[in-house]
Write a protein that binds this DNA or RNA. Sequence first.
DNA 1: CTATATTAAGATATAATACTCTTAATTCTA
DNA 2: TAGAATTAAGAGTATTATATCTTAATATAG
Lengths: 153, 153
Amino acid sequence: MYLSKSCIHGLRAGILLASKNSNSFVTIKQLSNELDISFYFLTKVLQQMTKAGLLESYKGPNGGVKLARESTLISFMDVVEAIDGKALLEDCALSLPGCGILKPCPMHDQWSVMKQEISAMLNDATLEKLAEMNYAVKNPGAEIDQLHKKSFF
Amino acid sequence: MYLSKSCIHGLRAGILLASKNSNSFVTIKQLSNELDISFYFLTKVLQQMTKAGLLESYKGPNGGVKLARESTLISFMDVVEAIDGKALLEDCALSLPGCGILKPCPMHDQWSVMKQEISAMLNDATLEKLAEMNYAVKNPGAEIDQLHKKSFF
DNA sequence: CTATATTAAGATATAATACTCTTAATTCTA
DNA sequence: TAGAATTAAGAGTATTATATCTTAATATAG
């Protein structure tokens, strides 16, 4: 499985918003500070999520972004689809276009099963649950593993 | 799951070599023609596989490349590791560095299980088996789906 | 109505990946 | 030994992904 950085950023922001559990707007500046992500880049990512209907945004003072619906109704999968597209779990196995039922690639069947399991997992993981798990969205890596510090989760 | 194009090219070449089931060298030119992959690019990819010990190469007339060991002893996973590195199945879940047993990310446990299943699948898929499945390594996509023609499998 | 806070959109810059070309090294054959 | 066949290695270009900056649009507050 491989998600783009944009996607990871979007997920982290989504989880953080869910954990705030507030109905008012949170500025992107605030989010980018807490997550230690470039404000500019995060802005772009959140714009995608807004266009996809996952977030609601508001300009001007007291503006910002917030979840467009309850955190129980937004899944990990929703975010992935909004940012990285549906190809990841629609395309065959190892993202081998041209593969299909007609002429399945060698791993088609096995992969189909796994794909379903993964989809189920990602659909089941709502932002609420993820926020509940209380994972330090804010930079656990720093404390644990100095080597792997590509930022994130 | 997401593999680089280099990796897909390498896999296709490996499967094709396995299907030829010959002990003599096959020129990269030949492989690139059959697979419809740029000769130059394929050369680079196969060089990586040679360095990783998956292929054996030989220069000069009657030279080329061949599998360095029996096709039963080279797995899909071997090729992926040689080209895309081990990160794919070593890193956590959704490639979130910083995640570990100490401070697992929200999907850590679930993903660990899936990761093992996927690893098992990829380890079990030897080039021999893949070649046996007789999948047209040579461009099935063209016949089936004109839209998806990014080359491949 | 003006100044300020904020997201949206577009333009630019940098980095990673994909792809191409050229030259060097090796080996065979005649 | 000369010439041809072939991979290896390095350099160059193209495309895509990541990241930054600037300007525009929208909203609030005073």
